[in-house]
Design a binder for these strands. Structure first.
Ligand SMILES: [Mn+2]
Ligand SMILES: [Mn+2]
Ligand SMILES: [Mn+2]
Ligand SMILES: [Mn+2]
Lengths: 220, 220
DNA sequence: TTTTATTTTTAGGTAAATCTAAAAAAATAA
DNA sequence: TTATTTTTTTAGATTTACCTAAAAATAAAA
């Protein structure tokens, strides 16, 4: 059984592992909002418990046990987010902080019944996949909106940025999950993208386009 | 903002206050499963924070601020219990421990939306009243089943014992909330009570009868 | 009203998760 | 390859919530 704090470390290490193979002390410190010295302490403890592999000065990787623990926390986080949006009418930009707390509730039974109550959702309100109780993810292949060519269209199925500011901005633009978009033009000057959504032409910055994930619909 | 631990102390003191005016160190220690010395430490801290009034060797009472805080935790606990039973199909004997964790989630918004989602319930799965967001309880006047006279009948609306063993026993006897019961006889020998429920005569021990709460229906 | 028992508090310590400041190792630049 | 910068670790403290053992206060019994 892990403490609240240990769980947070594992989850952060898991997320950082998605981009780098071994995870560095400073990177963890930044994410967890603590000092590197504190991270070193915790890292030793997690290694001691067999949840991570740790070589001094070289960074850490999750063991299989650590990975499964982390995935289970991610599962809980995302299921709670679905609950908050689908059942309690939270907006997609309001759920993260509460889910950060709820994810630590210790009851397998609770989470399985919640999963069932929600209809075994496959993705959370931000399009992130929800692992099943064995830790398996449905494979999802996203194409960044920025990578679509002129004339191609896709369905918005995720975002790679979860800040409230970004999510609210998308909401205002009408760019929510499930929306069909078609690339009309790309501006040479600033790389901004002209898209067709809900029969309206709108212009979004390159920065925004980078963080919208779509499932391609093919040409025309 | 109180810590998880502080909240537990306040809640326990609140519950103990229902039977005694000032609450003793040892009583708190027993409930919280800790040592009296630890309770003294925490008591000082809570007094420092203005949540309880404390006179050395004399016990404690909640201040208005402490009381409101405690009531809010009770509110959350009971709302979560309703959620677990009504929405996730937990049995009434399975919810307490999970609610002990959920009650500490810090989000006013969450609890208000949950309250609404549940249809503003007035009582939890054990018949205990749920305070509204201003800390006000609907007045409930229970009559213990043991206090009903022969020939009188009532509706089961609560229990004063929350152990899983007791609740499961009631379930097996068919004595759940909402059931109509009528006292047929009281055995001289052991004080056990003969009752009519669902057109069946059953015999329950005096001990059981003491912990069933009813709303009287009057004679016949 | 003493004596005895119970309750409560103090004194001094431990473990978890932090911190700051300084030392050590590794990576990068000159 | 040596010097500099960056990253990481150690050393030593702090805070929170506990603990045990012993002292002090209060309550109950003789
Ligand atoms: Mn989230
Ligand atoms: Mn999410
Ligand atoms: Mn309960
Ligand atoms: Mn209850």
């Amino acid at each position: 059984m892990q403490s609240f704090t240990e769980e947070n470390y594992l989850k952060i290490i898991y997320h950082l592992s998605e981009s780098t193979n071994t995870v560095q002390t400073n990177a963890i410190a930044e994410q967890i909002q603590t000092k590197p010295a504190s991270v070193t302490d915790m890292i030793k403890k997690l290694a001691e418990k067999g949840l991570i592999d740790y070589i001094k000065y070289q960074g850490v990787t999750l063991t299989e046990k650590g990975k499964q623990t982390a995935i289970n926390i991610v599962r809980k986080h995302r299921l709670w987010e679905v609950f908050l949006v689908d059942k309690l009418n939270f907006k997609w930009d309001e759920v993260h902080d509460v889910a950060e707390e709820l994810e630590h509730i210790k009851s397998e039974n609770l989470i399985e019944r919640l999963d069932e109550f929600l209809g075994f959702p496959k993705a959370d309100p931000h399009g992130d996949p929800i692992p099943d109780k064995n830790g398996r993810f449905a494979k999802t292949q996203f194409v960044k909106l920025i990578e679509l060519k002129i004339g191609e269209s896709g369905t918005i199925t995720g975002v790679s940025q979860h800040s409230s500011a970004f999510l609210k901005h998308l909401e205002k633009l009408g760019l929510t999950l499930g929306k069909q978009v078609k690339i009309s033009d790309v501006t040479d000057f600033d790389g901004s993208v002209e898209i067709l959504v809900d029969n309206k032409q709108i212009n979004i910055s390159r920065e925004v386009a980078k963080h919208i994930l779509t499932t391609e619909n093919g040409k025309n």
